[in-house]
Design a protein around this nucleic acid. Structure first.
Lengths: 225, 225
DNA sequence: CGATCGTACCTTGGATACAACAGATGTGCC
DNA sequence: GGCACATCTGTTGTATCCAAGGTACGATCG
């Protein structure tokens, strides 16, 4: 066994690179909801052919980020107000279970992840970097999942986390007031987690998730008219 | 609008047909766990080329039924005892929530589905058709999901239901005693559902799922040595 | 005899060419 | 002016070809 570890940058496959790029574009709101993604459009712009592009789109469809309509085209997913509610409900369900599990299985590791993410949130808040704050927010919630010990649960969460991130990027109105509320709620969650107070934590989590869902729902409803 | 319904067999895409065929082969135990699935092997046997085969395999990977190892090949998924436990736990979590939701949202529709499935189970049991019984069993549990009103929850369940079905086909030892227990448990669940007794139903469901998980886990452990 | 290197084969990864289908657009007729 | 039809374009669906990586086996050298 080699004693040193040189993490050689393995050139990931083109399809993986394309998938990642498009996903970033969606969750960073570079692409609008419902926007068409012809196979030879984005692909050629990146210098790749249709084959990896197709694979990337297929995988993105499995993640719910794009919708492929046979013989018509591929489009960025376009959630209805109802979708937002259902997504939030499902997210809350997964995350609640992850909280209970991680609390039972690996509370120290999860707590470390929460604190690190919260520190990153604080730094981003001081710097006024909304995007970094959002990223840290994502990491915070992913901490529960990473330590819950159930790979299927974690995978299911991943498959919707991107959609949640996209909603946040597209629909959030960055008000500092909101961010303050969010920040203190996260702090409270850490406190309850450290104390092993699952129910109190879940109450905050539920409020937290359902409140943002209401905001997104309203934003979509208004936009759609 | 045509007044008659001739369910004209829409020529689904080749990739969809291949996907379905391979999935059937896996959940019907025609293919062993870990078996290699070279792109030009199964494909050519069905007379299709590698491209639709690749798409089918990509989607099957998203469903957890196959594992694609870059530059090595594609293989039927091969769950470890731990995987079985986690899968069962996740399934129980999804299905419990679906029970609560369907009970709250559309109890009549769900109940109709349950009764229909249970009737099919009884018929299959009388006929001694184990495969038909298993299919009806799958339909029974899917009834909760179909009426829960949350598409994300239903989709997540679908994505693991195939794996559960595959476990059942590969590892079940068809003992009539087991089937009797299963049958009466399902009847009890219908009774509790009709009476709106969620907790009693969930207790049976939990026993039901965890018991079969223990069987599968043991079967895998023994097989692996 | 064993370890290591080279090579051949098998696999997937990607590109391109062709075919088929859906929708839009324009045109002619009524 | 409106409707029906043909065409035309843009898109996906499929097949085939070439390239590159990984594995296993055998040869070769110590």
């Amino acid at each position: 066994m080699p004693s040193i570890q040189l993490d050689l940058k393995v050139p990931k496959s083109l399809s993986a690179a394309v998938e990642e790029r498009i996903r970033d574009a969606i969750v960073n709101a570079e692409l609008a909801f419902g926007q068409a993604l012809p196979e030879d459009g984005v692909g050629l712009a990146m210098g790749v052919s249709r084959t990896p592009m197709r694979e990337a789109l297929t995988r993105l469809q499995a993640q719910g980020l794009v919708v492929i309509v046979p013989k018509k085209g591929t489009f960025v997913f376009d959630p209805s107000p109802d979708d937002v509610d259902q997504l939030a409900a499902f997210r809350l369900m997964l995350e609640s279970e992850a909280v209970r599990l991680s609390l039972a299985v690996a509370p120290e590791a999860a707590l470390a992840g929460l604190r690190a993410a919260h520190a990153a949130m604080e730094q981003a808040r001081r710097a006024g970097d909304g995007r970094a704050y959002a990223r840290a927010d994502t990491v915070f919630h992913a901490s529960f999942l990473g330590q819950c010990g159930n790979g299927y649960l974690a995978k299911a969460y991943e498959s919707i986390a991107w959609q949640v991130a996209a909603l946040r990027a597209h629909l959030s109105v960055p008000r500092l007031h909101e961010q303050d509320t969010s920040f203190s709620e996260h702090a409270a969650m850490i406190g309850h987690f450290a104390a092993g107070e699952a129910e109190a934590l879940l109450a905050i989590l539920s409020r937290h998730i359902l409140r943002s869902a209401a905001v997104y729902r309203e934003a979509i409803r208004v936009r759609a008219g």
